[in-house]
Design a protein around this nucleic acid. Structure first.
Lengths: 244, 244
DNA sequence: GTCAAAGGGTCCGGGAACAGACCTTTGATG
DNA sequence: CATCAAAGGTCTGTTCCCGGACCCTTTGAC
């Protein structure tokens, strides 16, 4: 009576994932990611600790430990007293340290993240195009794309780029989608930062952003998705080329 | 000097999500979901506690508490001694309790889950079609679809259906995609179970499964995605109709 | 019939997280 | 200048969770 397992596509192995890392580390990671992706930009203040801890579903103690870790990494500084608080002090490091400094994600994880992004970002664009967007939302999207153009050749470019992608995701209106895009961006962030800034690539990338914006604002979901797919494929090709 | 916040699409609110629930509850939820989605079918044994706890990244104590909770809910039973273990005792409840017994997800959460699924499941099918599948994987996929046909009009139908979807996701080969599909299925599972079993709907649904399988086995990614999109749209329409 | 192996069942000490109260600093305001 | 409020900083008791050692039950193998 040897087990009658199909043994080929074992669902349990595929589905049961190791759930939780340590809460403290998770919090550090989440805040660091938010900063590196430009959710909070340089000079911006984080919300007060009590508020932030509640939003993150974490005790204030743990949050404070996490902030202390960020402080040690030089990502934020803290001032006490009224009007004090924790402000972001982060400027994108110079690219060019092409995937040497950063612990390169193992091949499988990289492919995973790229595949995931290729699915989820176009999906977000598609969904966003189907929403009825308010005037300020439309303006926000356009500004986000414009900001990417505006920061070409500045250190802020990387951040403007991820802010644009997060803006698209946000306008999809679906929390699960937003979270997915965030995770994809976070997983690739280090690597995207390593893409050499050839003017040709960047221009092309910005044009694709504009195509996405255009389609979303027109409410053309299929076009929005197609444009974002192209964009993902382009950066994906660059990255794969870079890393063999 | 009122704050110069755009205030429209505040990224922090969108991105910073409450991270962790309680480990114990997470574990219970994960196992219960796995069982309800048919990752473990009726009569099947769970892995030994020591092994399972390691895979879930949870202490054996906590895992045991979780299993005890499942036992209290009647989802599993446990026998001691060599050859003993915890076996699943779960048969899909009769549908027909249309979204009355189950705590109906709030409207927004429902829409979120449907949107997410509509993005992620077709994406999984698309990716799966691009993989080079081994012979046993191809067979597994076909069997999964066949099983759905075979269980029409039996209580096992619901489970066969989600097993099919999880199989597609698994064949995509991307852990992040697998996880996303699992979450989508879990979020909708209760509701999908409430869809009345009109023969016409079910037949149609199975035909769409077959279309997906066909396209995946042919390696036609676009067709696979399109087929899965149709499928998601169909069930989505049914659900929305059911709940106003 | 005996025994060893493979399971589940129990217990305990230590560390992580939490909740909440309280202290200190500092800018704004009357 | 005195006061206040809004922040960060500190402390404490409690709960949750982990890791690991150990016990109990059953069954297949010799």
């Amino acid at each position: 009576m040897t087990a009658p397992q199909p043994d080929v596509g074992r669902l349990p192995e595929a589905v049961l994932r190791p759930a939780t890392a340590n809460v403290f580390e998770t919090t550090v990671e989440q805040l660091a990611t938010a900063i590196r992706l430009g959710v909070f930009v340089d000079g911006e203040q984080l919300p007060p600790e009590r508020e932030l801890s509640e939003r993150l579903g974490v005790s204030r103690n743990t949050l404070r430990d996490a902030i202390a870790a960020l402080r040690d990494s030089g990502l934020v500084t803290t001032r006490r007293g009224r009007g004090g608080g924790t402000v972001v002090t982060y400027v994108t490091p110079e690219p060019g340290s092409v995937a040497t400094a950063v612990p390169v994600r193992r091949g499988a994880a990289l492919a995973d993240a790229l595949d995931f992004r290729r699915i989820v970002e176009p999906g977000a664009a598609w969904l966003a195009a189907r929403q009825e967007l308010a005037g300020d939302q439309r303006a926000w999207l356009a500004e986000s794309a414009a900001e990417v153009w505006a920061t070409v050749d500045t250190p802020g470019h990387r951040i403007a780029d991820s802010r644009f992608h997060l803006a698209v995701a946000t306008l999809s209106g679906s929390p699960m989608v937003i979270e997915s895009v965030t995770r994809a961006q976070a997983a690739l962030g280090e690597l995207l930062a390593a893409i050499p800034v050839l003017p040709r690539n960047i221009t092309h990338s910005c044009e694709q952003h504009d195509a996405v914006v255009d389609a979303v604002l027109r409410g053309d979901a299929e076009a929005a998705r197609a444009a974002m797919e192209e964009h993902c494929d382009a950066t994906s090709a660059l990255l794969r080329g870079l890393l063999g």
